[in-house]
Design a binder for these strands. Structure first.
Lengths: 217, 217
DNA sequence: TCAGTGACTTGACAGCGTTAAGTGAAGTAC
DNA sequence: GTACTTCACTTAACGCTGTCAAGTCACTGA
């Protein structure tokens, strides 16, 4: 090894070590967020979990919000991947059904994350993040749904009065989100006694399809 | 006035003064909660607003949670009243439609309160409160909706497969709640660009009715 | 060899919800 | 009239939070 190679190697090692620490912070934060919730986990707890002082975190992330946001962005990508994994099913209506199920499965399996992604007001934080990623966080999943709705419209599968793809896609999303979010906040309410969320998602999905399709089979 | 009367009068005055202070705390807290949100409002800010020290509040409420919960219960009563005010419309389906609109109007006009009532996890706090009030907080509004759904079923207005009143009432509720809560968390997301919530509520309401009614007109 | 870089620590700050102990005015009893 | 009690409220503090200025120290480059 000549001196230039050594320098490069050592630079690379330092960068790798920094990246490892950064990842350790993210992993620790993720685990604590999932177990205790985002609000309840402290910077001190995250630091202690990986054997650093709390201030060390601030060398890798601007503040707690930036740390949270990074994990949140990863979750959006994961949701997008979960949506995408159902593949290109020919019938757009069937595709929407499958998306609803995949969405609900993701939400129920990642409750803490879902809470933070869709049940917390982030103000304009997402807009700011979007500039960096070059597209909005929900884009993948939302665009996927929107595409299916548009395709269904092109095939005249919906009643003619539903001619605005965004409006219809947002309605479908709202319905599923309503079931999920109500479940998260009211599952312990003994008076309301909410029904099983998986079945509830299926139910509202059936109802919304029957309410919008031209020929519900 | 004899001595007994004087004693009673002074006791009454002291109780009234205490009640006034208590109410002042509630009023100040309400205003701050609405403006800044529940989380961002501090006990110190509430106290400062009415010219007391923070600790004074603890003579009237066990802790911040108890103070919040009291306001929350008042909001549930207000929502119940808003529902009840639409009156006993003959057709249960039309009644459900009106309820949806009244519910959405309440939510959009009382955003902070709605957030806390239906978008925050209260664990078993409501159950504990319910023991005191002898009925669960949502009871009024939920029972009102449930009654309309049951009536619609008795009149065979819904498809026969929808034979469980709770399941259907919860589905309707979920749909409206989904539109509202998504609006609150994502109204500023420029990529999603959510449609007007009033129209969105009307849209999902129409869709859900068409998807459940035997003879949608 | 020596200055410089940068990951990390030390020690602190302001603000939070909450509480033990104290104050002082009003009511009660003799 | 004086002593005792009650109680709404204050004072001063505790432990907790997110965050930051300053310091440490191993490693790098000339």
């Amino acid at each position: 090894m000549n001196t230039a190679e050594i320098r490069n190697a050592s630079l690379a090692r330092r960068e790798r070590q920094k990246a490892e620490t950064r990842q350790a912070i993210l992993d620790a934060a993720r685990e604590l967020f999932v177990v205790d919730g985002v609000e309840a986990t402290t910077m001190r707890a995250i630091a202690a979990k990986i054997g650093y002082t709390p201030t060390a975190i601030y060398h890798h992330f601007k503040d707690k919000d930036a740390l949270i946001m990074e994990l949140c962005m990863a979750d959006f990508r994961a949701l997008g991947a979960a949506m995408y994994s159902i593949g290109r099913i020919e019938d757009p209506i069937e595709r929407i059904r499958r998306m609803a199920k995949a969405y609900a499965d993701f939400a129920l399996a990642n409750a803490s994350q879902y809470r933070f992604m869709f049940m917390t007001d982030h103000g304009h934080s997402f807009d700011e993040e979007a500039d960096k990623i070059e597209k909005s966080p929900e884009e993948d999943a939302y665009a996927f749904l929107l595409g299916a709705v548009e395709e269904g419209m092109q095939r005249d599968q919906f009643h003619t009065e539903f001619d605005e793809p965004h409006a219809l896609a947002q309605t479908f999303w709202s319905g599923i989100h309503g079931v999920i979010s109500l479940w998260f906040t009211h599952q312990n309410n003994s008076y309301i006694n909410l029904r099983d969320p998986h079945q509830a998602v299926e139910r509202i999905c059936t109802i919304m399809m029957r309410g919008t399709l031209r020929n519900p089979e």
